[in-house]
Simulated scan of single mutants.
Amino acid sequence: MSADETFPQAAELDPETATSLTAPPPTRPEETRAVARGVKRHLVQLGFAVVEELPLASGRRADVVGLAANGEIWIVEVKSSVEDFRVDHKWPFYRTHCDRLLFATSPRVPLDIFPEDCGLILADAHGGEVIRPAPEHRLSAPTRRAMTLRFARAAALRLYGFTDPRSGGNVEIG
């Protein structure tokens, strides 16, 4: 079998795959959205409920927060480029809001830039995989309660925003 017969042509693939093979590399916002989508898909497969861009009590926003059925909370910080990681100095503060802190990135970013004391997820628009587990640092009971309530309120208010046309989708917790 020749190479032409082994691999399908772009026109024979599904539209999403064909586009990814023929399109120029994604821009950073596109890459960030793709990684975040893959992270959310993976966390849901692991049994987590997920909320994106969750406002924290510190005033910062976590890229992706996962809440497990047992109450464990993961924060995943999405980094779509080396520059994105290097200019961000706020991620260490996320540890006080979660049981495990992880970074997620695309296959285009070198993995050795990420700190060893955080978990690491490799993701694209189709899914992700934890390639380095995050060390556990258990939240205190009051912080866990506050984070769980913040997560629940954000999820419920966002759902309300989708279901009530008068809200315009602009419902957010403070």
Rank of each mutant, 00 (worst) to 15 (best):
G71Y: 03
E77P: 03
T27C: 08
E30P: 12
E136R: 13
R100F: 04
I131M: 10
A134C: 09
R28E: 13
I75W: 01
V65C: 04
S20V: 03
T6W: 11
T96Y: 04
R60F: 00
R144A: 11
S80A: 14
I121M: 11
H89L: 00
T19N: 11
H126S: 10
Q45I: 02
F93Y: 08
Q9V: 13
R158S: 09
I121T: 07
K90D: 08
A36I: 01
T96Q: 14
I131A: 02
R60H: 05
V50I: 03
G66L: 07
L56M: 10
S106H: 09
D117V: 07
L122P: 03
P55E: 02
S106I: 03
V64A: 02
P165D: 15
E52H: 03
S2H: 07
P165M: 15
E72N: 03
A154R: 08
V35N: 04
A154D: 10
D117S: 15
P26T: 09
V87G: 02
Q45P: 01
F114P: 01
A154F: 00
K79S: 04
D84R: 08
Y94P: 00
H137D: 10
E52N: 02
F103H: 06
G59N: 01
T96C: 00
F48Y: 12
V78M: 01
G71C: 04
K79M: 07
E136P: 01
A3T: 12
E5R: 12
Q45K: 15
T105E: 04
L159M: 13
R166A: 15
G168T: 10
S58R: 06
M1E: 02
L13K: 05
G168W: 08
R37Q: 08
R86K: 12
L111D: 09
R132A: 09
R95Y: 01
Y160G: 15
E30K: 07
R100Y: 03
T22N: 10
Y94E: 00
E129W: 12
E16F: 06
A10F: 04
T19K: 12
I173T: 12
G71W: 05
D88E: 13
C98S: 05
P110R: 12
T6E: 14
A68G: 01
F93Q: 13
V76P: 03
E16L: 11
L46E: 15
E172V: 09
